[in-house]
Amino acid sequence: MKAIHVPKGGGLDNLTVADIPDAADPGPGEISVRLHASSLNFHDYGIVSGNMPTEDNRIPMADGAGEVTAIGDGVTEFATGDAVVSTFFPDWIDGPPPLADFTRTPGDGLDGYAREAVTLPASWFTKAPDGWTHAEAATITTAGLTAWRALVVDGGLKAGDDVLVLGTGGVSIYALQIALAMGARVFATSSSDAKLERLADMGASGTVNYKTDTDWGSTIAKMTDGRGVDHVVEVGGPATLQQSIKACRIGGHMALIGVLTGRSGDIPTAAMMAKHQRLQGLIVGSRNMQKDMVRAMETTGLRPVLDKEFPLDQIADAFRHEESGDHFGKITLSI
């Protein structure tokens, strides 16, 4: 079967399409899945670009969605024909996080889903939301669950809350949709006026261009009558955190998710202390969180925003599209 290999050192021009052995028949507790889609994330880009070194000929992509083709002995949660989606941390079923690295994450420490089929433990998957396409389902594993955990699990989001999302990547768009579906009010930033218009059309109550308004945190706070937002989905990192603190209310919650502006930097700790704010670092979530999210998507009718789809053998072009920053929502691969 066909798979993508990342050579040691990475590089988009060095990605190759390889023939690998077909997936084995499922053993006890395992399922075989014919993969149909994956979706691109910043973490995947780190792997394929070589910025996050991994093993030679690693199969990339943490997100995988497809159809169960066979089940092993003892599997009762799934049946052949079920639509399923992968989990980011296969060993994290429930409870507090058990690890602080990516050694057990598909597409990084383990081979991922840029291939046609897999046979793996059933616990590495959940059912996909009923009625979703495989491309839609593939967006849950990383981006969707990150937004869900940030707002619902860690943030305790409730109707009437104010939420700030930064930019128009997959996590931010998911966060906007989840917040709106749960009765919250959403504010958003972008460097593109055209994208800000799309955010407003989706329901954002206020938007700010962070390139033309460098004190955008204060502007967002003014939009809430000076109170500040209850939650910030902070995907930028060190270069945006100062403004996020300004935008966030006294006693508010900031979910620290991204490193888009770097892995370290100055943090105005005194300002955060003075406002009694909570800064919560997180990376995706557990399998049970994902199952809860799937039920919520089915209940609310929420569907992810898809940008552009590429065939698997054009994976390098897909990541170049991500590099450009022109996308709005999730970029996907068809397999």
Rank of each mutant, 00 (worst) to 15 (best):
S49M: 06
P268M: 09
W216S: 07
G251M: 12
S192D: 06
V284Y: 09
D230S: 07
A23L: 03
A23P: 00
V284Q: 04
G167P: 03
E309W: 01
T269P: 00
W148L: 03
N14G: 07
E309F: 03
A70M: 08
V284P: 00
L35F: 08
T168N: 07
Y210S: 10
D94Y: 05
V233D: 10
T212E: 14
G251A: 14
Y45P: 01
E234L: 05
A138P: 00
H253A: 05
S191Y: 01
T300Y: 11
D307V: 05
E234N: 00
I20Q: 03
K291C: 07
T69L: 05
M223E: 10
F187S: 12
P7L: 15
K8L: 10
D91W: 01
T269M: 13
M254G: 02
I20F: 02
A188C: 04
K195P: 02
D82M: 12
L12T: 10
T139Y: 04
S192H: 04
T69F: 02
G281K: 11
P106S: 12
E309I: 06
V208W: 04
A175D: 06
A200G: 12
R115S: 05
E234T: 03
A194R: 12
F125Q: 12
Q280E: 12
G301T: 08
H276D: 13
D44C: 09
Q314C: 02
V85A: 08
A271P: 00
R198G: 02
L157I: 08
G160D: 12
A128V: 00
D213Y: 04
A296V: 01
A138T: 09
G109Q: 11
A221M: 10
G228F: 11
I220V: 15
E30V: 03
P90M: 14
D215E: 14
M182W: 00
R263F: 13
T214E: 15
T207G: 08
D213V: 15
A83M: 09
L256G: 01
G29S: 10
D193L: 04
A23V: 04
C248P: 01
K308N: 06
D91M: 13
S205Y: 02
I245W: 03
S86T: 08
A128T: 04
A137R: 01
D161R: 04
W92R: 09
T189P: 00
T189C: 02
A23D: 05
D22F: 00
W132N: 11
K211L: 13
G301S: 11
H321C: 06
D313L: 03
P106K: 11
I47R: 06
K2H: 09
A3S: 06
V232N: 07
A117L: 01
V171A: 11
T219L: 09
I93Y: 07
E67K: 13
Q243G: 01
V48T: 08
L151Q: 06
D94P: 00
I59V: 15
P7A: 15
N209E: 13
A100W: 02
